[in-house]
Design a protein around this nucleic acid. Sequence first.
DNA 1: ACTATATGCTACC
DNA 2: TGGTAGCCCTATAG
Length: 474
Amino acid sequence: MAPKRQAGRGKRSFPPPDKSRCVQVPGRGGGPQAPGRGGGGGPQAPSSDRRDDASGGGLSGPREYPQSIIWALCQHKQGRAPQASFQQCLQQTFLHSLGSYRLFRTASPFDRRTTCLEWHPTHPSTLAVGSKGGDVILWDYEVLDKICFIKGIGAGGCITGMKFNPLNTNQLFFSSVEGSTILKDFVGNTIRVFARTNTWDNWYTSVDVSATNRVVVTGDSVGNVILLNMDGKEVWNLRLHKKKVSHVALNPHCDWLLATASVDQTVKIWDLRQVRGKSCFLHWMPHEHAVNAACFSPDGARLLTTDQHSEIRVYSASHWASPQLLIPHPHRHFQHLTPIKATWHPRFDLITVGRYPDPNFPGFTPYEPRTVDLFDGTSGKMVCQLHDPDCSGIISLNKFNPMGDTLASTMGYNILIWNPEEAVRRKQEGLIKAMISEHPRVSPLPLSSISEKVLMDIAVFPQRFGSFTQLGPF
DNA sequence: ACTATATGCTACC
DNA sequence: TGGTAGCCCTATAG
């Protein structure tokens, strides 16, 4: 038998929090044990063991009717293509490009595990990552030394939730094991304290913010949820769950709709306007295990839940009573692992989640790689797996940036950035730039004169190409 | 190579 | 309903 462990149990006296905060640049640029190329971005070994089920469908032949992006673009430009089919075609194209995603850059700036990951809402290459010691890094991965580092308190400082202030993107909301939900600027100055427990026995576990409704929601480790306005005034504070609240999420399109997930093995949907107590939920979704996360889809119509064992669920707002989709997926809980959370892609119907291979999960194979798995959000089929042979750890958190072309992951102490093969991209961008200077709009160009690869890029990521923004429906 | 360490969760009394 | 023994079994530093 394994030796008896005593970590993480019972009452322990924590070191008194050192409240002094300072700003510093982390000393370990890439980290001594960074997987291969901390901050570097050198040539990448191709990942040979990726399974790419998507390649069967999409762009096998450029002129194949009707999946060809050129066909779809023509149809769309002439106002003929049904929106759904065009969107589907773009998704197929994106899936195809996922096959070329490689580990682009890594960083290991912390002295403890990463616990939290959030992209900047408008700057496409900047992300914030929080750690178990309360440290936070703000990192522009395109500019190697452009970082902010907010020092945490060390033991017991764990960042549990993070959200850029939608009213001022130079500020971040944090919930923390240190016992507060707080708004700070990038230098670490406290702008406002929204909640404080004043005890080591209870702490905040998650935070979300609505810009339209001007409210802040935060959950704690004993089941309470607090609703506050942007000034920090408490609207209500109620015990909505029997155990720790693991996640709170406001619906992006319906700002009075709240989802809460808990280790009490339930997810609940609430109407913020009429919450009175734990029995006032609109809907109640019991799960087989504790639940790590409940995320609304970008259009607000669906809810994605991740449990602590082997289930990912998708619920539809039109029918909360039973899940629309139940995806079996190994991501079991372990005490010293950051809980695995599945997320939506911001623009396509895709779900991203880290795999923790489990000998008891059907289909387990020895030495099964710890991949990042992507699922189709409607069929539930796995469409792609990302893996880099130099990154052997379990990847707990995964999030695509708001533009949808870059994936950030966290693996233990490390931050990983996945991008389409860099050389290919640069080449394409060079091509596009040349095209733009020659032709300010794509319309006068005969479609046959543009390579399919270039068209695909314009269609899927028009934001990259300035003047083409008007082309798509997004 | 080996060990200590790190605010999880469940079942049970 | 509260306290805790037993179990889940990673990844890092020394």
